[in-house]
Design a protein around this nucleic acid. Structure first.
Lengths: 198, 198
DNA sequence: ACGAAAACGGAGGCTGGCTCCGGACAAGCT
DNA sequence: AGCTTGTCCGGAGCCAGCCTCCGTTTTCGT
């Protein structure tokens, strides 16, 4: 645990303080203005200069990944809830909903998510967490397939993309909840074995 | 037809020339750099100043809408081809493909498309053409429903959103053609009546 | 050919991203 | 405590792109 923090010299106090302040300010700005929020504004609100921000987080994606890391507690909580469900198909459905909500945290989040999924070399700090989510989705899909509730041709990646889509539509397009429900139903009929949920 | 061009005074020659040059330059830039291309660059390539560009097209969306208008010949050609098909479900399928390809013309096009679908007041120049496409989709959907090839609960708007999604995924995410095919199949199973295309 | 109306176009203000380096400051040693 | 050293801070500054305003130029009608 603390073995890593002792490697090399020592962790300076102001570094941790600034990092925490930046993360908090960034989260607030992302919540209010979306992922395109002004980084200068974030730095100002955190009480540091732009240089400090860019040293801690060289790119917007790096900052975003760190903030998302902070919020990942949501997802692990959801996974715990999901584990209690009996039906594998219900677990898959709830997992997709959990991802969709997670991706809806900040307006404009789906774009960098897609960009991260594209890159093979992890120059993008979002790539690793995304691959992790895709792998998790794949597990849920496999379980649902084994009980005959998901078509064999469906991949975890497909449903991950579908979750990103729903989040994107929610944030970008019509905020019509009816339309979103129809879209979710459409996706579900698309991956379920003949006949769908009913 | 020409009644409008004679109303008031007359259309100046340089206006038409500049407008045409702007449209051509804009199309080239959008093709190369996506919809976020530098408008200053467009103006420079068209051989006019920024002021001229903004007088002709007050916003980026207005320019985009005009360029898209230019390209709509594609779509009407596709509609003519589609009209020759026997099966209503095949017509719907082809129409969705046609929209998907049309929306893939410029990288980043899906975002303004979604933004346009959201607004009710047509301050956005893209809103009208989009509503037109949605209405057309609705027609194809109705026809497919009447021969029992599409579920009654599906709306034209849903499949329009799906087409935008596919274009977005193609442009933004993995360029994996296999994955796109799986996504298309998923959508299709989602809107078809029990059993899907096979 | 001339005058008025319309259009041009570039200078310039503004915002936000990103860099670079002189100065400050914390950690450890004596 | 005081010093040394290396890290870290932070703002001045540069660049790119958006958009506007107004003096100048072009065009059309007579």
């Amino acid at each position: 645990m603390s073995a890593e923090s002792q490697r090399g010299r020592k962790p300076r106090a102001d570094v941790q303080r600034n990092r925490a302040a930046l993360l908090e300010a960034a989260q607030r700005h992302f919540l209010r203005d979306g992922v395109g929020a002004s980084l200068e504004g974030v730095a100002k609100e955190a009480g540091v200069g732009p240089g400090t921000l860019y040293r801690h987080f060289p790119t917007r994606e790096a900052l975003l990944a760190a903030v998302l890391q902070t919020r990942s507690a949501e997802l692990v909580a959801r996974r715990a809830d999901i584990a209690g469900l009996r039906d594998a198909s219900e677990r898959l459905r709830q997992w997709l909903r959990a991802m969709e909500e997670y991706f809806s945290a900040f307006s404009g989040l789906p774009e960098p998510l897609m960009a991260a999924a594209r890159e093979q070399e992890p120059g993008n700090p979002l790539t690793l967490p995304c691959d992790d989510l895709i792998a998790t989705t794949e597990e849920y899909v496999r379980a649902a397939q084994q009980v005959g509730h998901a078509r064999p041709s469906v991949k975890g990646y497909d449903l991950y993309l579908a979750a990103v889509w729903l989040a994107w539509t929610k944030g970008t397009g019509a905020h019509d909840e009816e339309a979103l429900d129809r879209l979710r139903a459409l996706i579900e009929r698309g991956y379920c074995e003949q006949g769908g949920p009913e």
